[in-house]
């Protein structure tokens, strides 16, 4: 049994009379430790697919089974737990809380987790060093550039030791050097801790570094056979 089994999921948005198939009958199996890239034009349904896997939105039809558990049938609390314990999500857009410092933003997921804060503070400092903004730990998000905020979001996604990391254009506004560092970090976590990675990117070079590559077009998914 695969870690994540996506079977025939569709997501339809209705805008007035028009309905859009953002995700159209997609099936995909992902094993623990897989390293998957998703490419596709803007509006092809990548974010929608990633959000369905992450339990952030529900599909209109189909099922997502995680370690044998159908996440589409979970109640709100259980689904929150799934998001909290299993998934680390990096959003496409700025997603830090303006009232918290960088370090507090990073440890925030611990507040919502059964495991609690634990040694998150030390870990947060390590991760922030790792993504190169250790000196900004006590700054507020408004004092950071877009690229720096993205790095904070990466540290935040890692803090609860998720089994799966879902990253929506994680290196979007980053310079090539940092981009490479982040990819190295992902690969290392993937190798050493068997963390599953699914990331969306526009950068085909990055996509090619993944062990599996999928393409999306008009809601349809195609796996590139290597």
């Amino acid at each position: 049994m695969s870690q994540i089994e996506i079977a025939d999921i569709s997501k339809t948005y209705a805008i007035g009379d028009i309905s859009i198939n953002a995700v159209d009958n997609v099936s995909l199996k992902i094993d623990k430790g897989d390293f998957v890239s998703i490419v596709g034009h803007s509006g092809s349904g990548k974010t929608t697919l990633l959000s369905i896997i992450g339990g952030i939105i529900g599909p209109t039809s189909g099922s997502v089974v995680y370690d044998g558990m159908d996440i589409c049938s979970l109640n709100d609390d259980k689904l929150s737990e799934y998001r909290s314990e299993k998934i680390g999500f990096m959003f496409q857009f700025a997603s830090l809380l303006p009232i918290l410092t960088v370090k507090e933003n990073v440890i925030l997921p611990g507040l919502f987790s059964k495991k609690g804060l634990g040694d998150n503070i030390k870990k947060a400092e390590q991760y922030l060093d790792m993504v190169g903004i250790g000196d900004k730990a006590d700054a507020y998000p408004s004092q950071l550039s877009g690229g720096q905020q993205r790095r904070v979001a990466i540290a935040r996604a890692l803090i609860n030791n998720p089994e799966v990391i879902l990253a929506d254009e994680p290196t979007g506004d980053l310079d090539e050097e940092t981009e490479a560092e982040i990819m190295d970090l992902f690969k290392r976590l993937n190798r050493e801790k068997r963390v599953t990675f699914i990331f969306i990117t526009h950068n085909l070079d990055l996509a090619r570094q993944a062990q599996r590559q999928v393409q999306m077009k008009n809601g349809l998914l195609n796996e590139v056979l290597l």
């Binding site: 929150s80 997603s95 507040l111």
Partner: peptide, 15 residues
């Protein structure tokens, strides 16, 4: 949106 973000990173309604 902030609340949405907190929910997305694992906050329950009760939090």
């Amino acid at each position: 949106r902030e609340v949405g973000i907190m929910r997305a990173i694992g906050a329950k309604e009760s939090h």
